[in-house]
Computed example of a mutant assay.
Amino acid sequence: MDWLGSGSWVDAYAPEGFEAFTPSHGLAVLGLIVCVLLLWLTRGWIGSHKPVSEGIRWLLITILILAEVTLNIWYVAQHIWDVQTSLPLELCSVTLLLSILMLIFRSRWLYPIILFAGIGGALQAVLTPNLAYAFPHYRFIHFFVAHSAIILAALYMTWIAGFRPTWKSVGGVMLFLNGLALMVWIVDRALGANYMFLTGKPSTPSILDVLGPYPIYILAEEVIALLFFSLLMLLFEVLPGGRLYVRLRKGAVYGDDGVL
């Protein structure tokens, strides 16, 4: 793996650092937006052509697997794999692995976790990256491709596979996140690590900087997560295919039980 041991595009000690809201960052975000819009606009056509829909599903699976495998190869080749920083215990690492399982098994149990926690965590990462490397470094490309694939995996299962979230699943995902946070916090304490930033803020600028000191920002994250999940749920309700959208299209604002 000598070819991974040198060269500025893979060097773990590359001097040029990432800066948010630069043209390269903007293009990465724009690329995600274009992919989301294309998936939305072509959802009907993709859904009616099984070879295409299956091809996209396996493409996303392949991208997500390669993202995790190549990252660990890079850690090892650069001699920086460390139990305190390299385990897949960040929220996006967990949702990436769960996204693979969701896509392979078409899991309805994992779907709301990826839809809410996956999109929430990946979107925050894309907009305010905790990243040290600028384009065209491998880690820059890996970071945005992996996080974008998590978002697209959730949207694929919604728009192409026809899965739908429920308000009950919002509470279920909140319980999952708190259970996950407790387990990761225990690992953090045992290893002296800071996975999911449960023992301190990241060294690079992030949204956590405006949420108060430790541990107040963790409580603030809980509130923000619940609000974001609720807004996301409402968005899927009013988009074509959502239950509220269907009711309004039929001219009925209230359901049979009299509840909106």
Rank of each mutant, 00 (worst) to 15 (best):
G242H: 02
W45S: 11
L235M: 14
G44T: 06
G47A: 10
D256A: 09
S53K: 11
V173H: 10
I150W: 04
K168R: 14
L64Q: 12
L208T: 01
S53P: 00
A190F: 04
W40V: 14
A181P: 01
L232C: 05
Q78V: 06
W40L: 15
M183T: 03
L103C: 08
I33C: 13
L234S: 10
F18A: 05
L30E: 00
N194V: 01
L103K: 08
S53F: 04
G7L: 09
A220S: 15
G171K: 08
G192Y: 12
R189Q: 14
N130W: 05
E221N: 14
I224K: 08
C92S: 13
T85K: 14
F197C: 10
G171S: 08
S99K: 02
F144A: 10
F21N: 07
M183P: 00
V29N: 01
K168V: 10
V259P: 06
S206Q: 06
H147T: 04
V126H: 05
S24L: 03
V34D: 03
L177W: 01
K250E: 15
E19N: 09
L177S: 12
E19H: 14
T204W: 11
W3I: 05
T128Y: 15
V253R: 03
P205C: 04
A117L: 14
D188T: 02
P112D: 08
I46D: 00
G251C: 03
L89W: 08
S8F: 03
W40H: 14
L248F: 12
P88K: 01
G5C: 07
P23H: 10
H79Y: 07
G7R: 13
W159Q: 11
R247W: 04
V259E: 12
A153L: 14
P202W: 10
Y133P: 04
I207M: 13
W167N: 10
F135D: 08
M183K: 06
L38I: 12
L98E: 05
S203C: 07
L97N: 02
L30C: 04
T62P: 04
F135R: 06
G5D: 03
I73Q: 06
T95Q: 08
A190D: 01
T95P: 04
V187G: 07
G212Y: 00
A149Q: 11
M196G: 03
L96M: 06
P129N: 13
H137I: 06
A220H: 11
Y195M: 01
A134C: 09
S203A: 14
Q124H: 12
E237L: 14
K50Y: 07
W109S: 15
